[in-house]
Simulated assay, not measured.
Amino acid sequence: MEKHLNAKVLLVDDEEDFIHTLSQRLEVRGLKVTGATRGADAVDLVDKQEFDAIVLDLAMPGMDGLETLKKIRENHPEAEIIILTGHASVKTSIEAMKLGAEDYLEKPVDMQDLLKKIEEAKHKRILVLRKQSKKEIEKILKSKAW
């Protein structure tokens, strides 16, 4: 029996049918999925809510995946971004990793590989949030004259 992964995922791809199909496959496994078909929409969504993982296509009209990655990283350096593309190249994979992508997968993706990457991204995010919370608590404790 497959375990359910409780995570919030933003799926960004210009192909609506792909988003719909992959969303259904992820939701059956316990994930809450939000879809965006444009990079600008993805940036807006990340500004408004938190996601455990962002699965981002590279080849999109308008703001492409690399530009979307840059924009998200500007305001959310802790975001866990996984590139999922059908237009893979060594150059784009290196560029994506330099810009802060956590991982790089090619379409068609093996569902178990994608789930594993999302689970890893969620765990990294939890660790980052715990570390931030600990720093904030320490700051508060130091500022009080007990």
Rank of each mutant, 00 (worst) to 15 (best):
K48N: 09
G35H: 07
K71I: 00
E67S: 08
K48M: 09
D47C: 01
A53N: 13
G65E: 09
H76L: 02
F51P: 13
R38P: 01
L58D: 09
I72S: 11
T37V: 08
A36Y: 09
H76I: 00
H76C: 02
K70A: 03
L69W: 11
R73S: 02
L45K: 15
M60W: 04
R73W: 03
K48G: 02
H76D: 11
A40V: 09
L66D: 10
Q49S: 10
M63F: 05
G65V: 06
T37A: 14
D47H: 14
P77T: 02
D64R: 04
E50M: 06
V43W: 14
P77R: 12
E74D: 07
Q49E: 15
L45Y: 08
D57C: 05
P61M: 06
R73Y: 06
D44Y: 03
K71G: 00
V46D: 10
V55C: 12
I72K: 13
R73T: 04
N75W: 12
D57R: 01
I54V: 15
A40M: 03
V46W: 14
M60E: 04
D41L: 06
E50K: 14
D44M: 02
G65F: 06
T68P: 05
K71N: 11
L56R: 09
G39A: 03
L45N: 02
D44R: 15
Q49A: 06
A36Q: 13
N75I: 00
F51Q: 15
D41H: 10
N75F: 01
D57H: 03
T68V: 00
L56A: 10
A53C: 11
K70Y: 11
L66Q: 10
N75G: 15
A40Q: 10
I72D: 10
D52A: 05
L45D: 08
E50T: 10
P77F: 06
V55T: 04
D41N: 10
G62N: 12
Q49P: 00
G62Y: 08
G35W: 11
K70V: 05
I54T: 09
G35A: 10
A59I: 01
A42M: 05
V43K: 12
M63S: 02
I72Q: 13
D52L: 09
D57V: 01
T68F: 06
M63T: 05
L56D: 14
G62M: 04
V55I: 10
T68E: 05
D52R: 11
A40E: 15
D41K: 08
Q49F: 01
E50Q: 12
E50C: 03
A42V: 02
M60S: 06
G62D: 10
L58C: 05
G35S: 05
E67M: 04
L69Q: 12
K70N: 09
A53L: 05
K71Y: 07
E74T: 01
A53F: 12
K70Q: 13
V55A: 07
A42E: 03
T37G: 08
D64E: 05
G35Y: 13
F51G: 04
K70E: 12
D41G: 07
P77C: 00
A40Y: 01
K71P: 00
T37I: 13
I72M: 13
A36S: 15
R38G: 00
A53Y: 13
R38T: 07
A53V: 05
Q49R: 13
R38H: 14
L69I: 04
R38D: 07
T68C: 12
G65M: 08
E74M: 02
G65D: 08
R73V: 01
T68Q: 04
